[in-house]
Simulated assay, not measured.
Amino acid sequence: MRFKKEPPFSHGTTAKIAVVLVNLGTPDAPTSSAVRQYLKEFLSDPRVVEIPRAIWWCILNGIILPFRSGKSAHKYASIWSKDGSPLKVHTEKQAMLLRGYLGERGHQLEVVYAMRYGSPSLPTILDKLKKDGCDRILILPAYPQYSATTTASIFDAVFSHYQQVRNVPELRLIKHYHDHEGYISALAASVQTHWTTHGRSEKLVMSFHGVPKRTLLLGDPYHCECHKTARLLAQQLGLSQDQYVVTFQSRFGKAEWLQPYTAPTIQLLARQGLKRVDVICPGFTSDCLETLEEIGIEVKNDFIHGGGKEFYLIPCLNEAPAWIHALATIAEEQLSGWPTRLSGSEVDAQKRLNDFQRAEATRLGA
């Protein structure tokens, strides 16, 4: 095996430390060609689709990519912002704010973001960190609940990348934070803020990303972690069991996925006479296609056509201060023991920079 060329080494330099916030990814543009390229990378991952490769190659290239790319591009176009893909915009801002919050707490390190699929790609970012002299790296997935289809795929990409590297940095990888106090509190704060502004529904629907049921039967803890998140959130909000429901969205193909499914559940609630429903997607830390279009447009239409009157999608955590504080705490806990501490004057300087970055994030529409 030939290893990648190592960057020039200079004696006396201090190795740097980095946090990499990794999200799923997004097409570069809401066009058929860009979406096709993105879907091909995403759906070619054996963690995502566990079908024999030869069979799946024919299905993917002969049926899915030719027919689904255009439809998906239309959906992306419906939620695309002036700054680009919402998921990418929010993830970039989260990384910027996370660096500032950690700096205010006295930590000196790099904080960058990467995408598992699409750009900026995880291998590209890891290469850049090596060139920048980072010898300790914390991988922070944007997925609170662990699944082999998401978190493990990030780990695969990290390990695969470093198989080509001679001098591998020290690595730490965060598996999950589905029950972390800061994360749950941030979710509760977002719901309570929404209720303060808009009032509240009789029913709160907590919709998580769907995965095939067979993954649960084969030992994936995702289903259990989603329910624990929901239970802890309900407890913090003071909800009884009949005041909320857990559902799963984004079915694909004919196989059974985790149930109950979001869309049919919303339709049933409308038929039962519920006139208003509030929906939150706790598994997504940034608004994206699956929240803004699938839930905010498609499922909303299902509810209204079923007889419902008011449908509210509670925004994802995005750049909410409570969430960035929680994210900083999650990272800080995992950075324990690494030499990240700033001097007092450096902390003051970082606070001034953080104030500027917050103002800039607000100006850009955070």
Rank of each mutant, 00 (worst) to 15 (best):
P123W: 02
M96C: 13
G182P: 00
I297C: 02
K203N: 07
S121M: 10
S153E: 08
W57Y: 09
N23A: 10
I184K: 01
L274F: 14
P221Y: 01
G210D: 02
T265D: 02
G273R: 00
E290A: 04
M96A: 13
D132N: 12
Y312M: 13
L97Q: 10
A270N: 05
I17V: 14
G100S: 10
G308L: 00
S33Q: 09
L216D: 03
V205C: 00
Y261F: 15
Q249K: 04
L60C: 06
A142R: 03
G199I: 00
N61M: 08
P221V: 04
E181N: 04
S240E: 11
V112A: 11
I304P: 05
E92L: 12
Q334F: 08
C288R: 09
F155T: 02
R68L: 09
F311D: 05
E92M: 14
L342K: 14
L317K: 01
F356K: 05
T149Y: 00
R68G: 09
I184V: 12
P46Q: 11
E202M: 00
V299N: 10
T229K: 01
L109Y: 06
P30C: 06
L268E: 11
K82L: 14
G12L: 12
G84K: 07
D135K: 14
P144T: 03
D287W: 04
P321R: 03
L233F: 06
E256I: 10
N354T: 14
G199W: 06
L313Y: 08
A361C: 15
I295T: 13
K228V: 12
K16L: 08
S286Q: 14
